[in-house]
């Protein structure tokens, strides 16, 4: 029983870690662009990024199932590994989680970049910092609270993901059977004891995340104020 619970825990943490890392890489330029661009269609892009907040996971899961499948781009990529589809694979889950958690990374970052404003970067420019240098040594440190909340929210949101994984995961132990799906399984098969362990653990974890978030925010605002 220890293994049957530990395996989904490990897998879930791996998925959340990889997803957060990749979203940090992908989300930062998107957030920066959304914060600085004056393009008229900027808000349209921002809305697309925010879509997963509103759409039911079943909608995302349905499209992902088709996109990851043999008739979509996912199947083309999977063909390189001799698989018919990226569904039911860990990389497939990472792609799904990245789509699902995208707004949780981009929005805090964009807000933080907005809060930094033009002024510090202009000052950096007068000191002959290149835009690249100014971004790394001025904007990123000033936007640190945004990075922290983006990372924590994305990680937590991926840990709590259910609908998308259920629709594209295929419930393979050690590969796609994450915590929320394992919990669903235990409830379906009336294994209340295991279900209690996972559900209780999730409650404690979520509480810790939210508490950590507000403590960090308080410390940050005190440090600034």
């Amino acid at each position: 029983m220890v293994e049957s619970i530990w395996s989904p825990v490990r897998l879930t943490l791996e998925l959340a870690f990889v997803t957060t890392l990749l979203l940090l890489v992908v989300g930062t330029p998107i957030a920066w662009w959304l914060s600085r661009s004056r393009a008229p269609w900027k808000e349209a892009v921002a809305s697309v990024v925010a879509l997963p907040l509103v759409l039911p996971p079943t909608v995302l899961g349905f499209y992902l199932l088709i996109l990851l499948g043999p008739n979509g781009p996912g199947g083309w990529i999977a063909g390189g590994f001799g698989l018919p589809s990226l569904a039911f694979t860990f990389p497939g889950l990472v792609i799904g989680s990245m789509v699902y958690s995208l707004p949780f990374m981009v929005q805090p970052l964009r807000n933080a970049f907005d809060a930094v404003g033009e002024r510090p970067l202009e000052v950096a420019a007068t000191l002959r910092a290149s835009p690249w240098d100014a971004f790394w040594s001025v904007a990123v440190p000033l936007a640190r609270p945004g990075f922290l909340s983006g990372i924590i929210l994305t990680f937590a949101h991926t840990v709590g993901e259910f609908g998308v994984v259920l629709m594209i995961g295929g419930n393979i132990p050690g590969e796609t059977k994450v915590l929320s799906v394992a919990l669903f399984d235990y409830v379906e098969t009336l294994q209340w004891r295991e279900a209690h362990i996972i559900a209780g653990g999730m409650v404690v974890f979520s509480f810790a995340v939210i508490l950590a978030m507000s403590l960090i925010e308080r410390r940050m605002s005190r440090a600034r104020g």
Binding site: L65, G69, G75, P84, S85, F88, G170
Partner: peptide
């Protein structure tokens, strides 16, 4: 669904 979409 899995079979009909060709994922399996």
């Amino acid at each position: 669904q899995f079979v009909d979409t060709g994922n399996a």
